[in-house]
Design a protein around this nucleic acid. Sequence first.
DNA 1: ACCTGTGGCGAAACAC
DNA 2: GTGTTTCGCCAC
Length: 858
Amino acid sequence: MAFEEEEVLEEEEVREYEGEEIAEFKIKGVISTSIPPSIALSVTYDGAEGKALVKLYDPSTDTVYYWYDNTGHRPYLLTDLPPEVIADKVPEVLKHPGFSHMEVVKKYDALSNREVLMTKIYAKDPLSVGGGRRSIRDLLQKTWESRIKYHHSYLFDRGIVPGMWYRSNGAGLAPVPIEIPEEVKASLSKVFSSEDEREAAEEWIPYFQAPIPHIRRVAIDIEVFTPQENKVPNPKDAEYEVVSVALVGSDGLRRVLVLRRPGMDIDLEAFSDFDFEVLFFDNEYDLISEVFKVITQYPLVVSFNGDNFDLPYLYNRALALGFKREEIPIVARRDYVTVAPGIHIDLYKFFAIKAIEVYAFGGVYRGERGLDAIASAVLGVGKVERQESISAMPLDELAEYNYRDAFITLYFTLYNDELVMKLIILLSRIAKLPPEDLTRSQVSAWIRNMLYYEHRKRGWLIPNKEDIIASRGGAYTKAIIKGKKYAGAVVLDPPAGVFFNVYVLDFASLYPSVISRWNLSYETVNCQEKENAERPIAELPHWICKGRRGITSLLVGILRDLRVHVYKRLAKNAPTPQERALYDVVQSAMKVFINASYGVFGAETFPLYCPPVAELTTALARYVMTSTVLKAIEVGVQPIYGDTDSLFLINASEDKIKAMMDYANSLGIDIDLDKVYRFVLFSGRKKNYLGVTADGGVIIKGLVGKKRNAPVFVKELVDDIVKELKSVQTLDDVFKVRDDVSALVKEYEARLKEHKITLDKVAIKTSLNKDLDEYTKNKPQHVKAAELLAKYGIRLGRGDVISYVKTRDSLGVKPVQLARIDEVDERKYLEYMATSVEQILEALGISMEELRGVMKLA
DNA sequence: ACCTGTGGCGAAACAC
DNA sequence: GTGTTTCGCCAC
């Protein structure tokens, strides 16, 4: 980790580092103090050298450079203990072999809003003295419990931002100036009224405007001999042969390296029409040697699950075959595996990031983890079908299979004009995290790093979590849901029924807007200068500082304003399609940070955890919502439903909507007309409705028949019903459609009763969110089914999806693989159908009993 | 090993 | 039998 002190220099890691990393860098990398304009790919601490190492890439000459930090940075820690006290009370610190020197520095402490004097204790090279700074900290903590108040990065006070452009200027790395388009400059003064905001926004602009170069890259995928089908070889032991390695590069490289094995004939004819080249090797050593040669020629290596399988397997296999460590361009880090001279991105980990899944890909591969499933969902291409095990596959089929996987992996980074790579670079710049770290950490780590960077840039102390809680307090409200920490959003109770001509208003980025508008930040909330503060809302006892702008409020506000008023516009109006596409990536990268900015303050694991901030955010949002509801009634529109930041209105008109917008503006929040529905069906439940828009689009929310775990035949029934509903234009049509819907339901019921249905249509797919033995409080059905499956050697665990059917036996379930259609408990399925259909029927004014009654008569 | 939040629905399991 | 808890999935 580049900028995160706590992440670096754990004792185990120190030992791992010793000696190995540098040797190969010296062979493969271009170590230089003369750097042409290049983008920073990674910033790490090089333990053996005791220096910062920046990997840079110059796309114009296609060269990777290593630049070592020679500016005298040394690991340090900050304490509020004065030097003379340390010397007097803890003299061991001065005698510690890792101790270098100490000095007194002035820092701004946002929590107390004053300058404080801190002692900066420098350590020598941490490796040569066994832990250095870390062991000094332990020493201090042992003697002076919890006196180490504030932690700090030892690498840079002002970091080199990954993804940005630098060149050497004699003294060190200097940023390459970025050209800012006139229209962007001009819009800044319009968007930001205060000087502070405008200045801060100006500093952000280069991160969004700096060019994103094409980074040449290679995707790698390996296939390993497996004596038993379904058993993944352990990369630690690496006991079986690497039989095939596919390397597919963005520069046109399409190569599969195949190992000749006894008993495996090579049918040259079969290889002749492949669109990739195949190289045969007589021994594994040469094959792997060739793989390493290729890896070292690229600034970027991409893989799918390379952290946990491909790269460690290659590394350990190479060791076993007699390679020396310094001949292997693969480096194990504490949390991941990287390469030399470039960097390694594991797309498996990237796609597992929740924020990426939700915001970047709209949830299209939700819950899926495999290459095949994600590729089908995102790219629309799947893997090559495979009948035999890797070990038994004819070599031509093996090569084809292997090639496809590597090709898909590369294609993830290339499709849609390199969307994924551009997104990664932009997210890196915003978070100040190198791509290798960014693609492996969740959004809270991104925001943490971004905020830490902003603190360091300003010379602020980074507060400890305990200090924030101690001075700002905890939550005041009680959550509705048991086990939650504070009250959240309001949800209006909708009436059941069909409503025509429904207008939906939407508060734009409500929570971020609240944070920005009310100056919410851990240091401004419940500050010490109570006389210069005000209580924003009677419901809560919290007060907010008036005299200074909160750092999180400022940042969230700037990002939101830049996104809405600059980059969303550019994404629509920029002159060329390429520019528009790029600006669209920019605005979606910003969205990820903006949307996650509220939640982190309510997360105990977040280092700037501050319950009053989270609680004020939701409380003020509730106020915005409820007062707007009252306003609606006042202007004569009827709010029928609303959830958190949306409001469904009937009897609306343009001037009434305008009045609503004016009101929201007076609160300092933007409100947009999000949708106009031709009609909406409300089942009477919250978070549960079906709407058809003016242009015939269908929007379904929360209906059980639409959920991922609904049996296919229920989904099909709901789809059929929806098709009927689409034709509805008037209230009369509703009555007509009722009969059709009833008929459909009866038809499906009959099909189920007569077993005219296949097993896969009644299968329920549910994911296991824990390993089987972790379900201790109760044993849900899908867990029972998974246990049955385990008896047959199919072991499922966290993240896997189990497919099961409900049966009439005492256990009540069977995995779909073990069940027969005549065992199915049709009663349960009729119930399932009933609840799904009810949510639509009740809106139409029919009850399920009525429908059943009709059926009996018929 | 994992790390953004709370509110809401429905099924089943569990506690009494 | 009823009421409560747990779990998965969803809305925002």
